[in-house]
């Protein structure tokens, strides 16, 4: 009666297939996509508020992922860029990350063919977003110095799968015990040679480098 069914399939293959569809749509529309990830409160939205106005000649849109509320999406709309909001609590059971299907559902609200760059601001979380590809071309993560030096060792998958690590809240360094060299050593152990940028979204110092990275990603 009992029968063994050999499967040998990656658990996330369904997500990966949808991510491929997203990627094909992005490429057809000629838009480059950045998946921006971080822990909650690391400063993704503040960084975008500073960096996006610096993108001269780049047509940018934002897809906002949040469990609830339009707070971050409203801040992006204030920049006068096209914004699509995906609240994961409405149709996605309060998921703690964006997956490829959720991103796909949010794409209908965006004029993809009129964009050079789409920034997907993922749900704040250092674990799940790293598992789910969404069809992005590049991944960046925002780490803030208030989080502690050991985070790359505790959440290696996130730090290992990103193409850029932004170290935010550098203006707070004089007030913290944070050991920057130790953090960079830990980062190097988990992801050797990954580029990093030191900046403060609050003061604006160093943000131009991140804006340049976005421009370069957009092919501008």
């Amino acid at each position: 009666m009992d029968e063994v069914v050999n499967v040998h399939r990656h658990v996330l293959e369904h997500n990966d297939a949808t991510a491929k569809q997203n990627r094909a749509d992005f490429d057809e529309a000629g838009v480059r996509v950045v998946n921006l990830m971080s822990a909650p409160g690391a400063g993704k939205t503040s960084l975008l508020e500073r960096a996006l106005p610096m993108l001269a000649g780049v047509r940018v849109g934002v897809l906002e992922g949040d469990v609830q509320s339009s707070l971050d999406a409203d801040r992006m709309r204030a920049l006068d860029v096209p914004v699509s909001l995906v609240n994961t609590d409405v149709t996605f059971a309060g998921e703690c990350h964006l997956d490829a299907a959720m991103v796909r559902s949010g794409l209908v609200d965006l004029p993809l063919a009129d964009l050079d760059l789409l920034v997907v601001e993922n749900v704040g979380n250092l674990v799940c977003p790293a598992e789910f590809t969404i069809g992005e071309h590049r991944r960046a993560m925002v780490f803030s110095v208030t989080e502690g030096e050991e985070k790359p060792l505790k959440y290696p998958l996130m730090f290992r799968t990103c193409d850029l690590v932004v170290v935010n809240k550098m203006d707070l360094l004089p007030h913290l015990d944070f050991d920057l060299d130790l953090f960079l050593d830990n980062l190097d152990a988990v992801h050797p040679d990954v580029p990093h940028q030191l900046l403060s979204a609050r003061t604006g110092e160093g943000v131009r480098c991140f804006a340049a990275w976005l421009s370069e990603t957009a092919g501008a």
Partner: peptide, 11 residues
């Protein structure tokens, strides 16, 4: 790896 290797199914 994060793979479903196999299943045992009944009726």
């Amino acid at each position: 790896e994060l793979e479903v290797h196999s299943l045992v199914v009944g009726g």
